[in-house]
């Protein structure tokens, strides 16, 4: 989910850029030299997720999974998502440099929210874990699309109707992301629980 270049107004671009810079600074502080490779690898996996297309009716959608990434990485999701989007911009020309800040914010802010709101539920296991997994996928895409709609609406009043369509069109994606994140979380907890269920180091991210 990203906004193309050339659409947003200067104040939105600058605001998004500044917030992303702040989030990235916090995220980088959570990453020490020892863990930098883990974050890079997950950032690469996040990039790959965007290339995976799952069928829906006659068409297909690509995965986003920013909620899952956020639950694993916490604040480090900011630099990880920034990196993945920069790679997408260089390799596929999706988005560009100017809109990179806003696009990172769209995906990384919900990811960090998932970390704070839903991760405590994951540790409790059972039904809580399933619900938290589903919400992690559903809410992260929902918040992303609301932020996207908001940045369009702040750019120009004429975009308000388009912004509403953006949120509406994303509802099927929210549901599918919800199920996929739920199943992925239950798989990870069974196979390698330390990825999701580690003890926090107290500053917003284990990594």
């Amino acid at each position: 989910m990203h906004i193309s270049e050339g659409i947003l107004a200067a104040p939105v671009l600058i605001g998004g850029g500044l917030l992303t810079a702040a989030g990235t600074a916090v995220g980088l502080r959570c990453i020490d030299t020892e863990r930098i490779m883990s974050v890079a690898m997950l950032s690469a996996a996040f990039f790959v997720a965007a290339l995976i297309h799952v069928p829906i009716g006659p068409g297909s959608i690509h995965l986003i999974l920013n909620g899952l990434l956020g639950m694993i990485l916490g604040w480090a999701a900011f630099p990880a998502i920034l990196t993945a989007l920069l790679l997408q911009a260089v390799l596929f020309q999706y988005g560009g440099i100017v809109v990179l800040g806003v696009n990172t914010l769209l995906q990384a802010l919900p990811a960090v929210l998932c970390y704070y709101v839903l991760r405590p539920w994951l540790v409790r296991g059972g039904r809580h874990q399933k619900i938290a997994g589903f919400l992690g996928g559903f809410l992260s895409v929902f918040v992303s699309s609301v932020l996207m709609a908001l940045s369009l609406a702040l750019t120009d009043e004429g975009f308000v109707q388009t912004a509403k369509i953006v949120v509406g069109a994303n509802i099927p994606i929210m549901i599918i992301e919800g199920f996929i994140t739920m199943f992925a979380v239950s798989f990870i907890v069974k196979v390698q629980p330390e990825i999701l269920v580690w003890k926090s180091n107290g500053h917003g991210g284990v990594l």
């Binding site: 996996a45 790959v48 995976i52 199920f179 996929i180 199943f183 992925a184």
Partner: peptide
């Protein structure tokens, strides 16, 4: 989901 989780 399982395939991607295994990749992770």
């Amino acid at each position: 989901a399982y395939l991607f989780a295994m990749t992770l």
